[in-house]
């Protein structure tokens, strides 16, 4: 168990069919991948047109990982995410309306428009925190894991972060502490191969992040993050171990960032061949082909899912744009639980 590093399943979907979820779950996964892709692209369009004033961190390339987390995680499980959180939020079944309204800073958003795109939270659906600080979610997940362990609950905690976050001290402190205390935490590294604008191999002496993290005495494995079935199996296994009291896991989901680091940022520095190879495995269309070719879901149903996704995205943006702005009294609300005597400016 300790220090186990598995190879990446470069072969694609056919490698992992022994844990096939039921048809409803497969349909949900496809729908979620589509929503992540389409909402992401729509948000970028709105920002480009000057109609959406929000920092955007695209999730294109991570759709399969997010869909897999949505199926693997149980309703009582909790998640800590980062600024690149659209797919994570969908995996927790947070309505797209609330996600997009938060991006518009409206009352219909997850935080009444006071958190914004980098700070989606929905306690009821188990998205406990999203942080805009690289790597800072991992200590929070350790704390949530401690709470779950003290509660003797069957709750597991998943924390998502990019490959860039594995460089920061908080990550290494958290790997050690979670392993030391055998906490029910799954570290889900959404490795998109780029730390901001620097490729992994240029900032890590050992770019095999799973191998590096295994040294902390936790279960670490790498998986093909473009393969939703393989990713589902890896994350599901990690959650099972967490619930069984076997401690934390580090799952390095190897993917590729299909866009710039942030909303409208330059992407010209990315090698053309690498990007083309990654785009050839674009999660949602690749998954559709696989579902159809293997007879898991028929074409008419997939067409219907696509049509529904288009409508859901349109509806979410319309809802967000019509949702009221926070009233002026929201400025001072929620700073303190008991604000008696604290300053007002």
């Amino acid at each position: 168990m300790r220090g186990k590093v598995l190879p990446v399943h470069e072969a694609g979907h056919d490698a992992m069919t022994n844990t096939l979820p039921d048809r409803a779950a497969l349909e949900w996964m496809y729908s979620t991948m589509l929503l992540a892709k389409m909402a992401d692209e729509r948000a970028a369009d709105e920002a480009r047109k000057g109609l959406l004033a929000a920092a955007l961190y695209p999730v294109r390339g991570l759709e399969a990982v997010c869909a897999a987390m949505g199926v693997a995680m149980a309703p009582q499980d909790q998640m800590v995410s980062s600024y690149r959180n659209l797919g994570d939020a969908l995996s927790r079944k947070i309505p797209l309306r609330a996600i997009i309204a938060e991006a518009y800073g409206r009352m219909g958003g997850t935080s009444k428009g006071k958190g914004g795109t980098m700070h989606l939270t929905d306690n009821e659906r188990g998205l406990i925190a999203t942080t805009g600080i690289v790597g800072a979610g991992m200590p929070l997940a350790v704390g949530l894991g401690l709470a779950a362990q003290l509660d003797k609950s069957d709750r597991a905690i998943a924390v998502t972060f990019g490959d860039g976050a594995t460089s920061i001290g908080a990550a290494h402190e958290s790997f050690n502490l979670a392993a030391l205390w055998k906490l029910p935490v799954v570290f889900v590294c959404q490795n998109n191969q780029w730390g901001e604008h620097t490729p992994l191999a240029e900032y890590a002496a050992n770019p095999n992040l799973a191998e590096r993290t295994a040294a902390y005495g936790l279960h670490a494995e790498a998986v093909d993050g473009f393969d939703p079935m393989a990713t589902l199996q890896s994350i599901g296994g990690a959650l099972d171990r967490a619930r069984a009291g076997e401690g934390p896991s580090f799952i390095e989901c190897r993917s590729y960032r299909l866009t710039g680091h942030s909303g409208l940022s330059d992407y010209s520095y990315v090698p053309t061949e690498e990007l083309a190879a990654a785009l050839a495995r674009d999660p949602a269309p690749t998954f559709r082909t696989w579902l159809e070719q293997n007879g898991h879901v028929d074409a008419a149903t997939l067409d219907q899912i696509e049509q529904t996704a288009v409508e859901t995205v349109d509806d979410a943006f319309a809802f967000a744009q019509q949702s009221p702005h926070p009233s002026p009294d929201e400025l001072m609300a929620d700073v303190y639980a008991s604000p008696e005597g604290v300053p007002t400016r």
Partner: peptide, 28 residues
């Protein structure tokens, strides 16, 4: 020892763990 926990020398993760445990319903 579950409730009075000695930690490694990791100030930011002591506080981060406390914040996470508070989000999980505790009063660290």
């Amino acid at each position: 020892l579950d409730r009075v926990r000695a930690t490694p020398i990791v100030e930011q993760t002591i506080i981060g763990t406390a914040v996470g445990a508070a989000l999980g319903g505790y009063r660290p």
